[in-house]
Design a protein around this nucleic acid. Sequence first.
DNA 1: GTGTTTGTTATCAA
DNA 2: CTTGATAACAAACA
Length: 287
Amino acid sequence: MPELPEVETIRKDLNSRIVDNKIVDILVKDQRIIKTSFRNFKEILKNSKIKEIKRRGKLLIFVLDKKDKYLLIHLKMTGQLIYKIKDRIVAGGHSEKKTDFDLPNKFTKVVFTFSDKSKLFFNDMRVFGYMKITGKDELDEILKKGFGIEPLTKDFTWDNFLKLFKNRKTSIKALLMNQKLIAGIGNIYADEVCFCAGVRPSRGVDKLNEKEFKKIFGCIEKVLALAIKHRGTTFNHYTDGDGNKGGFVKYLKVFQRNGQKCKKCGSVIKKIKVAGRGTHYCPKCQK
DNA sequence: GTGTTTGTTATCAA
DNA sequence: CTTGATAACAAACA
């Protein structure tokens, strides 16, 4: 479940590896991933170079060297972007399962081959992710319509943050996950931010006090920055949890820790449903 | 076969 | 018009 910290980690890794690398071949194994017309997609990418990789929320924006052309990639729930030089994976993966080192695998949907024979694999088990080519106007329209304040930038100010709550009555969790208001927070970090702030995810935003707003504001930056520092959460939805997971998993306070003891107070972490999603919290630490 | 998993959108309701 | 709640999507697994 790549959210802002995972997508940012992938962005930085890929940005340092594939910028100025020329795409010489595009293999599309599953056309459902491509939201641009098929012929157009390959034609534009062929012999293109990637000038820069940007990110807005959970969306990756590959700036192409062709005029007015952008490749947008969204990983949704199970998408992966893995860059491989010869037989060695270098960047972009967020799974440590052995099978993922064997590429392409049965979930590989798109493969880019670069002029130096290195490859970029787009894998997606559930086919929710997409690739799409747009021009500048369409890109601006997409960003304007669907993306709210970008955390960890200068736009994330106290004033802008407070405006989000004006005349709203939804739960804090639903608000945090609303991409049109704040971009990049999903289920994992919504729960973690709420724990950090000592606020139950189900609390209505109209019932929060000044002190709680302040905490939530600070915790969004704190949690996301820490997660980026540890290169995101490699979430294992399989039962085998052996070996070194690395990353942010060991710093998770509540997410997927239902039934376990709170790291702060020792109470048992509970799991409920909020905003239609599995939601984890500590009944003692969060009010 | 059933329920569960989540990012996003569509749809309907208030 | 705005906001919100919920279903739907897709695929795999317990």
